[in-house]
Amino acid sequence: MTELTHEASLEHAHPEHEGTGVENRKLGMWLFLSSEFLFFGALISNYLLYSNRAGFPGVYPSEIYDIPFTSVSSFVLLMSSLTMVLAHNAQTRQDVNGTRTWLFATAALGSIFLGGQVFEFTEFIVNFDMKLSTNPAASAFYVLTGFHGTHVAIGVIMLLSLWGISRRRGGLSDRQGLNLELVGLYWHFVDIIWIVIFTVVYLLSVPPV
């Protein structure tokens, strides 16, 4: 993502281009995210393939999900999309304090979600003895949710960077404002993926009988 920010875009050099009208970096972000959809699509398919194959040794992830707990952490992540929108909205209104607050809130909610994931993994490994190498279903679960968690973590880092820049410079420039919008796009994407994971992986998958 950071690769996509701050790029010396040539667009302004000669505005008389034929084009989509979407700013270069924003278009780049959309394209990148469309690729990411397939990345997670493949990971989710892997999980679905293995999650209800009978006969593996050890526990299946679907036997030990703590749905109430994960519902709460999913709700937290969902709320972070709301705070992200508020941050963007504050930025467009040039409300420096508001932007900063909501950016921080988003990062904080994201971190809480990550904390939940760490707790969940620990729980599964320590109490239920389900490791990456327990069976293919467990492998698929950890790699899928692990990659999602990594995406959230990268998002948190980007949010905190924006927050830090805003604090040091007393606000975000227009250019940084665009970065905020890009981080927002990324953040909503990560949330949407989680909604899919929560629904398909947690709520709908049942252990094989």
């Binding site: 690769e3 667009e11 281009h17 034929e18 989509t20 270069n24 780049g28 990148f32």
Partner: peptide, 19 residues
């Protein structure tokens, strides 16, 4: 992957006038 994003934005947004 990086160059595919780059080329796509280039083709979609940087064509000369009239192209």
């Amino acid at each position: 992957l990086v160059s595919s994003v780059n080329f796509l934005v280039t083709v979609l947004n940087l064509r000369a006038k009239g192209m």
